[in-house]
Simulated assay, not measured.
Amino acid sequence: MKILAFAGSNSGVSINKQLVTFASSFFNEDDVEILDLNDYDMPIYKNEREIENGIPQLAHDFAAKIDGSDLILLSLAENNGAYSTAFKNVYDWVSRIKGRKTFGDKTVFLMAASPGRRGGASVLDIASKRFPFDGATVLETFSLPSFYETFDAEKGIVDQEKLDELKKKIEIVKSNFA
């Protein structure tokens, strides 16, 4: 199975990149590609830019990565209760490509981590409701609250209950492809 994994963040120390990288390690029998949104840095979407310059090649490149995958692992950063600007901009540009749904009718395992107790609950709620309209089948969601207490950079998730929850959801995702 070909898996595309990325964080909805452009932070160099993204806790969501750490989470999605950790989650992808449970798919060691699969072909996993971890993307960095910094490699898809484009001008902020504006209709006039699209009319004047067309859709950036990086948006087409990102869409090709989606199209080449069977499963998307996505851990969203929550900024002020919603998507990060970096993610939203890539999302906006890819959505403008004619004849495609943004997520290309792919299965998505949606995650979020945050330093707070809600674990990105707001962004997970928004994405779970919005992404199906854009060609995503959100198979599972996972929230990791209190990131700096529940995650260790070398060990991964150290909260046993949250680790067990993640593993259970990964097994559900894997069984969908069996």
Rank of each mutant, 00 (worst) to 15 (best):
I55T: 10
I34F: 14
S25P: 14
D41R: 15
L37C: 04
E48L: 08
Y45Q: 08
Y45K: 07
F26A: 12
Q18E: 07
Q18R: 06
V32H: 10
I51E: 04
Y40M: 12
N53Y: 06
F26C: 13
E50G: 03
S24G: 04
S25H: 05
E48M: 08
P43D: 01
N28F: 15
T21W: 07
I51K: 07
V20H: 01
V32N: 09
G54M: 00
D39A: 11
A23F: 05
E48D: 14
T21F: 03
A23Q: 04
A23I: 09
E29C: 15
L19Y: 11
I34V: 15
T21E: 10
F22D: 02
R49K: 15
E50T: 04
N38S: 08
D30H: 15
S24F: 06
I34K: 12
N28Q: 15
P56L: 05
D36H: 15
L19A: 02
D30T: 02
Q57K: 06
P43G: 00
N28S: 15
N53H: 11
P43H: 01
V20D: 06
S24I: 02
A23T: 12
M42F: 09
T21D: 06
D36A: 10
G54W: 04
Y45I: 14
S24D: 08
I51W: 04
M42N: 06
L37V: 04
S25V: 04
P56E: 09
S24R: 03
E52S: 14
N28M: 12
I55C: 08
D39L: 14
I44A: 06
Y40E: 14
L37M: 02
L19C: 11
N47T: 09
D39F: 10
P43A: 00
F26D: 05
P43Q: 00
N38Q: 06
M42G: 11
D41A: 13
L37F: 02
Y45A: 01
D30I: 04
L35A: 06
N28Y: 13
E48C: 05
I55L: 10
A23M: 08
D39T: 05
E29K: 15
S24W: 01
Y40W: 11
Q57V: 01
Q18C: 09
D30Y: 09
R49S: 13
Y45V: 14
S24E: 08
L37H: 02
P43N: 00
F26M: 03
S24V: 08
I44D: 05
N38H: 07
V20L: 03
N47Q: 04
F22I: 03
F22P: 05
V32F: 10
D31W: 06
N53C: 10
F26L: 14
T21G: 12
R49E: 13
N28G: 14
N47V: 07
D36I: 04
A23H: 02
E33W: 03
E48F: 06
F27I: 09
D39C: 07
F22A: 02
G54A: 01
Q57M: 01
I51N: 04
P56R: 00
I44N: 07
D36S: 14
D31R: 13
Q57I: 00
F26V: 10
A23D: 03
E48G: 02
D36K: 03
Y45E: 06
R49Q: 12
I55N: 04
Q57L: 05
S25I: 06
I51F: 05
Y40A: 13
E29G: 15
I34Y: 13
D30A: 11
A23P: 07
D41Q: 08
L19R: 03
